[in-house]
Amino acid sequence: MTEIIVVTSGKGGVGKTTTSASIACGLASRGKKVAVIDFDIGLRNLDLIMGCERRVVYDFVNVINGECTLKQALIKDKRLETLFVLAASQTRDKDALTADGVERVLDELRAENFDYVLCDSPAGIEKGAHLAMYFADRAIVVVNPEVSSVRDSDRILGLLASKTKLAEGGNGRVQEHLLLTRYSPKRVASGEMMGVEDVKEILGLDVVGVVPESTDVLSASNAGTPVILNENSDVSRAYQDAVSRLLGETVPLRFVDEPKRGFFARLFGG
């Protein structure tokens, strides 16, 4: 059975595309057949993060308009056998995406026996974001521990509970997961940043992952290698844990507490 997972947040710049790329790689590295789709029509970026920008010939809108087949538009990843990318179109036409078109593509992916389809949502609550979540079975809500991100994601939770196919049909609801990114254990410890428990309490969601703030994320996007593939990075370990939890494993949270420092270090700083 194909599971459709939307990666969403409301606010921009919190790490949706980074998360989509890494979770897709993580699932594929465990043998799952995965497609990751960029829903940010007009502002294509997932291809850059995945490092396949020069291999984009056809895109999502081409498939919807019947200008090519889905097979022609799916870009096979060079690192992972079972991973495919569907790039966003660069068109400025706002109505390029249609619910019918998106559903047809998803149905075809189902028929091709994909295990997971990740929908990388654009920021905001406009059409692209709406269609990215509309057919989802599950949602990963990416949140920074910061007031505007938390508030916007609560708005997204409201939409997930009302404006999705599952919700409208009365056939249950989208399963929601919280993924915290840019988390700084040090700043949480000093009371400058809301912690996992704070955000969890406000939003009332289960936590699927906590990704620490790190310079590795920028290095990874510079190189076009999803950060989860940098095995020396804590960010990679955090995303691997998140993938395990998505697959139903119970894994304790890591990278949420600051390492304990000795008495003298605390007294004199540094």
Partner: peptide
């Protein structure tokens, strides 16, 4: 962070 949490709790 405590201030942020309190504000968010109310507005949410």
């Amino acid at each position: 962070a405590q201030v942020a949490k309190e504000r968010l709790r109310i507005i949410v």
